[in-house]
Amino acid sequence: MTSASPPARQGADPRERDGGLGTGALALGLVATGTGLTAALWSGMDWLAWTALVLGLLGLVVGFIGARRAFHDPHRNGAMSLSGFVLALIGLIIGAWLVVPALLGIGTFGEGLTLDECMAQAQGQHEERMCASQHIDEYRARYGDPGGSGG
């Protein structure tokens, strides 16, 4: 006696096709991109850059798993997983673009300081150049044009 396989369901709910991974990836990607763009547009929202970074990482993982499952199973639709993956990648890039310079201490030296305070805290020519570029008008008034001919 042979047992026949159960008949395939024709009207399967689309949410059952990807196991919720596509929806999760898309939601994480949208929130990661939105918080990253918000952090980039408004200063003082640095915590949003961290949120975009973390949610972007999570969205990448969930989107990758969902897209991989959909690739290996012809009954699954991986469009939401793939779009969530792409949006999470965008959110991750924006978050990293905002967080990494702060972590490495590059690009923000001397912000909010006067030229005198900045030059007093500078340790080396690189930081002195950062002070000069941030306070270029005051620097030129005191020390002359650094790029001009000394003639």
Rank of each mutant, 00 (worst) to 15 (best):
G34A: 14
T35K: 06
T35R: 04
G36H: 14
G36E: 05
G36Q: 14
L37N: 13
L37W: 15
L37F: 15
L37K: 14
L37A: 14
L37C: 12
L37V: 15
T38H: 09
T38M: 08
T38S: 09
T38Q: 08
T38A: 14
A39H: 06
A39N: 08
A39T: 06
A40E: 11
A40N: 13
A40K: 15
A40G: 10
L41C: 07
L41P: 01
L41D: 04
W42N: 07
S43I: 01
S43G: 12
S43C: 00
S43E: 12
G44I: 09
G44Y: 07
M45Y: 08
M45L: 12
M45H: 09
D46M: 06
D46F: 11
D46I: 04
D46K: 14
D46P: 13
D46E: 15
D46W: 12
D46N: 15
W47C: 04
W47Y: 10
W47A: 14
W47F: 11
W47S: 15
W47M: 11
W47Q: 13
L48Q: 12
L48C: 10
L48H: 13
L48Y: 13
A49K: 14
A49G: 15
W50Q: 03
W50P: 01
W50A: 07
T51N: 04
T51Q: 07
T51H: 06
A52F: 08
A52Q: 10
A52E: 03
A52K: 13
L53G: 11
L53Y: 14
L53W: 15
L53H: 09
V54W: 03
V54S: 03
V54C: 02
V54Y: 03
L55H: 14
L55V: 11
L55A: 13
L55D: 10
G56Q: 11
G56P: 13
G56W: 04
G56A: 11
L57K: 01
L57D: 00
L57S: 07
L57E: 02
L57T: 01
L58Y: 04
L58K: 00
L58P: 04
L58S: 07
G59R: 11
G59F: 05
L60Y: 01
L60H: 01
L60A: 03
L60I: 01
V61H: 02
V61A: 02
V61E: 00
V61D: 00
V62W: 00
V62K: 01
V62G: 01
G63H: 08
G63I: 00
G63A: 04
G63K: 02
G63Q: 03
F64N: 05
I65W: 05
I65G: 02
I65K: 10
I65M: 07
I65A: 10
G66T: 05
G66Q: 07
G66R: 02
G66N: 06
G66I: 05
A67I: 00
A67W: 05
A67R: 09
R68A: 09
R68L: 09
R68G: 07
R68D: 06
R68K: 09
